[in-house]
Write a protein that binds this DNA or RNA. Structure first.
Lengths: 172, 172
DNA sequence: TAGATTGTTAATCGATTAACAATC
DNA sequence: TAGATTGTTAATCGATTAACAATC
């Protein structure tokens, strides 16, 4: 993973001591402890905004559920797919988001809509009481400090690959 | 963007001077120069390995083409979708990858297959002469130093969001 | 006791920030 | 000339690495 032993010990020590000097780490225990540090012991109810290819891909990804991230509702502005089931969850119209959030104790929204509508949607979600946004739209959202935004900017990732490809001979 | 003016000037200075003291930056010129630094002036031919929801989402994303990343071939192991057109590109069986790569001057592969097959596929791609891999499988690939790998590990991203949500009150 | 491994302090390195010179 | 803005050097900060103590 290109991390030194020293780095791992330092990192772990920010959260406490999880091993035994001279003996080692209990891998299962350490794994669970890291999960707790990351907050994976807590359950989250999510909604998915935007049921395009990317949204559907995320909805179908089972491993998130294993980690306690439960997709409760799916919303899209396209009328043609309203009622369509994705992993047994019906696609709902956008104007039901507010009531759905209140009834289902939602704290995270996955944003997989085009960037044109993303900033406005983020504002609305905040006003409805969202706590975190997993943002796949290619824009930076402007939200209050107490709302967590985690960006997945795929175009930036691809440009990083591009840069590294163009500069291989310099690096190595 | 939570970057200071000083930081931007330092960063740009690693590549040269793009502005005029006392006057400012020519935005269009700077934008193009940054594109050149990132290697966006170069064209790349890509193949997509794995035509599931995520693969299809990426194939349908037009903006990559604008930046010079052209998806030339799509491959999947599922026979049922062989021949299916995604943005006018037919899905091909996996065993055609090698010959296709040679005939079409491919330098980047997008890996959107389950992690079980990803490590082996990466090895094969390297042996076929791939230069870069955009890896969406939830594993770390082990490839030679001169091959660029750019990882998009969505589960890590979600865990970061989880951690930040669990620790908001501490941070702010 | 010797070897191995984690915890913790100190040294080193690199990135960010601040300050100021150069220039329009 | 005054104000504004970039380029560049120096100071500060934080993260990585190295060294060693503690412990099995």
């Amino acid at each position: 993973m290109k991390v030194t032993a020293s780095q791992i010990r330092q990192d772990l020590n920010n959260f406490g001591g999880f091993g035994q000097q001279g003996y080692g780490y209990n891998v299962k225990f350490l794994y669970d402890e890291i999960g707790n540090i990351l907050g994976l012991d807590k359950k989250h109810n999510l909604i998915l905004i935007g049921a395009g290819n990317l949204g559907q891909a995320l909805a179908n990804y089972v491993n998130f559920e294993k980690r306690g991230f439960l997709i409760k509702g799916i919303f899209d502005k396209n009328k043609d797919i309203h009622g369509k089931l994705i992993r047994n969850i019906p696609v709902r119209p956008m104007d039901e988001i507010e009531s759905f959030m209140k009834e289902n104790d939602i704290d995270i929204a996955i944003l997989t809509i085009p960037k044109s509508g993303a900033v406005d949607m983020a504002k609305k979600l905040v006003s409805y009481g969202i706590k975190g946004i997993w943002n796949f739209a290619h824009v930076d959202l402007n939200v209050p400090d107490n709302i967590e935004v985690e960006n997945v900017h795929l175009s930036e990732s691809l440009m990083k690959l591009s840069y590294n490809l163009a500069n291989i001979q310099d690096n190595r």
